[in-house]
Design a protein around this nucleic acid. Sequence first.
DNA 1: CTCATCTACAACCATAAGGTTGTACGTTAG
DNA 2: CTAACGTACAACCTTATGGTTGTAGATGAG
Lengths: 116, 116
Amino acid sequence: MVVDELSDAEVDRLFQAFADATRRDILARALVSDYSVSGLAAHYAMSFAAVQKHVAVLERASLVTKEKRGREQIVRVHLDGLRRARRLLEEYEVIWRQRVDRISDILAEEEGKSPS
Amino acid sequence: MVVDELSDAEVDRLFQAFADATRRDILARALVSDYSVSGLAAHYAMSFAAVQKHVAVLERASLVTKEKRGREQIVRVHLDGLRRARRLLEEYEVIWRQRVDRISDILAEEEGKSPS
DNA sequence: CTCATCTACAACCATAAGGTTGTACGTTAG
DNA sequence: CTAACGTACAACCTTATGGTTGTAGATGAG
């Protein structure tokens, strides 16, 4: 029933990509409009190469893709990655809810057996 | 309007915590039932100390808390952390949606101005 | 009381992560 | 054509991460 089967390594890369403020900011910028790598780099107090590496991390996590436009490389968000990460977290919450429900059921049953 | 204001460092820790398969598994186990640290450690092909460190990472990320019970330390999930992470990812999707809507509006307006 | 259990933590090691600078190469503007 | 721009990538450094072993302190079982 689970449609998007991600390997552990893929999920690792996905969350690892989110685990850095610069990368989250890059993602946020790329979400609202198109940026080239150097266009993004202009916003950060670090070298172009560093930003390039951050984009590479996002790319390996399937969160963005790069599209060549002339001599520039446009970074565009790949929404699927984002959705998958979000769904994974939702699944954890579902598990929690199921547990709560299960415990409620057990308590209800116990009460039915010996109403104190 | 943003209720849960997380610092960059907090969010870093949150996603960093998810970025390891062992930790995600620990979290999943702790979600479905109560486990002591050694009870968790029994499931993994690594030392107790290693598992202990993983739990510590989850704890620093506010994803779990430990509760002393006799000589054991019970690991319980702190649902808030989970919810916050999920909401953050949802916010990115919202931003994306807003962008799509904005572009649609612009296109609609352009069409209104000079219907080709 | 004594011993096994559970935990905590320090010290150490190998590798990964995040940053730097430097070099090289395709592309576009003038 | 030439110069500037955008990119790619290698080499290097420092610190963080994920693992190990070993030691030591509480606590519970017998």
